[in-house]
């Protein structure tokens, strides 16, 4: 399992956050907004989003999907696909829609939206866990290389 695979980037995440960084993203002040202002979540047709995966959608600059909260994290969860059994516990309980699951498979973490709460690590049932917390600056390869062995059941 290579680091490249681990650090899976979906197509849709490539441009994330760019528009906010670029100059010219003019915002009206709170006292300038008029009644009936609309901040659409999508550019173009939004009638089928329930059947589109994130990478198939046309997010508008106003959709928080295009923003990032990565700077909130001091620790990050690292995913080890070799141990994962695709149970999807992490997907259902992640409060920040940051578990990338496609076709019943857990593929990785969306580090633009993950806040590092560690809930996914807590609910991961494998032994050793398929998700573990590391310092934000830890290299993914180093993290995977230091993965613990399977824990033996303690005799009572």
């Amino acid at each position: 399992m290579s680091v490249e695979q681990q650090d899976l980037k979906l197509k849709a995440s490539e441009n994330r956050g760019k528009s906010q960084l670029e100059a010219g993203f003019d915002l009206l002040g709170w006292d300038e907004v008029t009644q009936g202002s609309v901040l659409p979540s999508f550019d173009g047709d939004a009638s089928n989003v329930a059947h589109q995966k994130a990478e198939e959608r046309e997010y508008s600059d106003y959709n928080s999907y295009t923003a990032t909260v990565a700077s909130w994290r001091v620790q990050k969860p690292v995913f080890n696909i070799d141990v994962c059994i695709d149970c999807q516990n992490c997907w259902v309980w992640c409060p920040d829609s940051s578990i990338l699951s496609r076709d019943k498979q857990m593929l990785g973490i969306d580090y633009d939206h993950c806040k590092g709460c560690e809930v996914c690590v807590e609910v991961c049932p494998t032994n050793p866990k398929s998700l573990l917390m590391f310092n934000e600056y830890t290299d993914l390869g180093d993290a995977l290389a230091s993965w613990p062995e399977k824990k033996k059941k303690e005799k009572k």
């Binding site: 989003v49 329930a50 059947h51 589109q52 995966k53 994130a54 959709n63 928080s64 999907y65 295009t66 923003a67 990032t68 909260v69 909130w72 695709d86 149970c87 999807q88 516990n89 997907w91 259902v92 309980w93 992640c94 409060p95 920040d96 829609s97 940051s98 699951s101 076709d103 019943k104 969306d110 633009d112 939206h113 993950c114 806040k115 590092g116 709460c117 560690e118 809930v119």
Partner: peptide, 28 residues
């Protein structure tokens, strides 16, 4: 849960609820 996970989230990340907040688990 595997079947359930094939749904496409319509509640997006980068909201500013606290890390670990259950509100967003319920909304999702």
């Amino acid at each position: 849960l595997k079947e359930f996970s094939t749904n496409n989230d319509r509640f997006e990340g980068a909201h500013t609820l606290c890390p670990g907040c259950a509100h967003s688990m319920i909304v999702r």
